[in-house]
Write a protein that binds this DNA or RNA. Sequence first.
DNA 1: TCTGGGGTCCTAGGACCC
DNA 2: TCTGGGGTCCTAGGACCC
Length: 475
Amino acid sequence: MDDGSHDGGVRATASILHLDLDAFFAAVEQRDKPSLRGRPVIVGGVGGRGVVATASYEARVFGVRSAMSTAEARSRCPHAAFLSGRFDAYRVASLAVMGELCALSPLVEPLSLDEAYVDLAAPGLDLDVSPAGLDAVASRLKESVHQATNGLTASVGIASSKLVAKIASELGKPDGAVIVTPGTEQELLVPMQVNVIPGVGPATAERLRRIGVHTVEQLLHVSAGELVRALGQAHGTGLFELARARDDRPVVSQRATKSVSVEDTFENDLVDPVLLAAIVDRHARSVCERLVKHRLSGRTVTVKVRRHDFSTHTRSATLAGPTDRPVLVSRIARRLLGEVDTSGGVRLLGVGVSGLSDWIQDDLFAEEEDAADEPLAVPESGPGTARPRHGSGYPPGIDVEHDEHGPGWVWGAGLGRVTVRFETAETGPGPVRTFAADDPGLHRREISVPDEALVEAALADEVLTVDVLPDEVLS
DNA sequence: TCTGGGGTCCTAGGACCC
DNA sequence: TCTGGGGTCCTAGGACCC
């Protein structure tokens, strides 16, 4: 590759901007409630097991930091205002900020409610990236964020890479802007502690300390091989490059969601299995609500248990096809919970779904209504594309995940036959049967017929999935 | 005074297939 | 009869980020 840049793909111009709102949650509270201005404000969990999400600068003077337990924050700063947070308000403010960023460039990558990267050299954009030009960009942006949010301040870093832009915005805090001239990145990093590099947390810092590394300068003297030995392949080679300010990660605007989860830490440890199962149900419902809202479904259900001693355990199971059904997620999650010893008390309980698909059968139906004359496509994904339907008279105790495409889909596809595959989560694929597609009672009647796989599943209280597939897909 | 909730990515071992 | 190696999927745990 010969594009004039040989520094691990780092750009020749400072065209990546990182914006970070100052003490965001606390700043929104102070903005909306004048009596809090100039006072220490701490937003986070206010219960006995809460932690600090954001401390205002007035509270930081007393040593209060993010991720500190609220109990410790109270002892350090008893006169602070402790607030549990108003996420709707934070979301509104965040959207306003992201709007200003999108006005600056079409390529914006939000990292959280209060942080984002912006590509100042996005295709079609013709910004002045000279030092004077970047100064103007930064001050105009800070001003427009201030306006759009009714008074919030942000810090801005601009550099030739994500790594350095982020470190630069941190240096600018609060309410500042730091522009790093291309070519000077390395000298900026060298005197810093290794933990300024994003990805170097307490565990990595401790491993580095053990090989005598505290600063970036010292990190430069460690070979790639030695770093890989100490930190593993990905982290080792990654850190070797970052220490040299070599970072060619692009700004990526939309990243797909990989998982959805809900968890809850209890004021007191719970032991009652009935209560725990009820909480699993509640979490499963709320996870599925969010899946539906985002038009997603997922194949892998995970239960997370943090026990009285803070040890954390997960159990997961993967279905043949994706689901967004609370009863199914709940059923599996309950079973997984049963595999964990909870007799000593449970501190935290969570339910998550991953292995997400962005399609569900409802999408297909909706499209078909709009384009009824289009040939009906069979989803490439194969099994598990059918939308579940409730109350179809299955044998008691059997939960059917996938069932019955309905006439609009399978029959409209003009196929002569459909294939039904019986499958349980435990035993894998069961019998495969083919039916004439024009039998209107086919699914209901066949599924009601006692079938070995069905009976076994019912007796074992297992999850049953029935995939309805056109012949071509199955073969 | 013990350690939130929502995520992402990585590692390592085993199963399974070619 | 013995000996493989690579790729993919799944599971459990851990580090890290805001």
